[in-house]
Design a protein around this nucleic acid. Structure first.
Lengths: 117, 117
DNA sequence: TTCTCTTGTAGCTATTTAGCTAAATAGCTA
DNA sequence: TAGCTATTTAGCTAAATAGCTACAAGAGAA
């Protein structure tokens, strides 16, 4: 498990791959749709997807002719969040998250409990 | 010191550099102390420190003959946490932190040393 | 000054990665 | 069967990375 942390952070080190993850946040998309959002060639995006899959950050599902990719948010949050908690004091992490969504006032204290969605 | 998320994630992609950050959690250490914790050569560790410095994850301070490094936890938490919040639903991130905290209740308060290697 | 300790830089090699084009694979339709 | 679409794999080149040894630079001590 500790070895896969390198795979995850290496996968996140490339801006195209971070953008792919962000594009997958609303829901699953085909490889072609993902590739169409970038100027790089299809095979290049396919390899980026392979890196993300190898890191466990996306999952794939076949639908006839196409392959649909979707984000594995739990793995991303667990692995990255675990490392963050190991290195930083937890207060700093929570404050960073709070600063990110200033719209939501009391996210860390009360809410976020049964929020599966 | 770059501002790029790619630099930060690339810095975190190497296990030696993650271990260095963890070793710096209790407080500042000299380059020699840091290097002594690894089997790699001094120059190799020096370059790892340079990568971490370039990513803004550590800061250095001169003390006579030595150079003392310390963790910049805020930058780590802000950058990584910001990306995490951009890609994952916030609830997943918070639950991941909470799960981690449940497993190791006293990690943030006391040592978390483990840095032996 | 010179000597020593500590840390960083230079130069080299081996390995990995990112990008491309061309070809192969998987599935559907006629 | 052939043909068409979607996606991945193969093969290549250029660039980046990690490791090493050897050397240089900065700061005290003698």
């Amino acid at each position: 498990m500790s070895e896969s942390a390198s795979d995850i952070f290496a996968a996140l080190a490339h801006p195209t791959r971070r953008q792919i993850l962000q594009d997958l946040k609303p829901g699953e998309r085909t490889a072609g749709e993902i590739a169409a959002a970038f100027s790089a060639s299809g095979p290049t995006i396919s390899r980026h997807l392979s890196v993300l899959r190898h890191a466990g950050l996306v999952s794939e599902r076949r639908d006839g002719n196409r392959i649909l990719y979707s984000l594995v948010g739990e793995r991303l949050a667990l692995s990255v969040g675990d490392f963050l908690s190991t290195v930083c004091p937890e207060q700093i992490v929570l404050r960073a998250l709070r600063d990110h969504d200033r719209d939501r006032p009391d996210l860390t204290a009360a809410g976020a409990e049964g929020a599966g969605a």
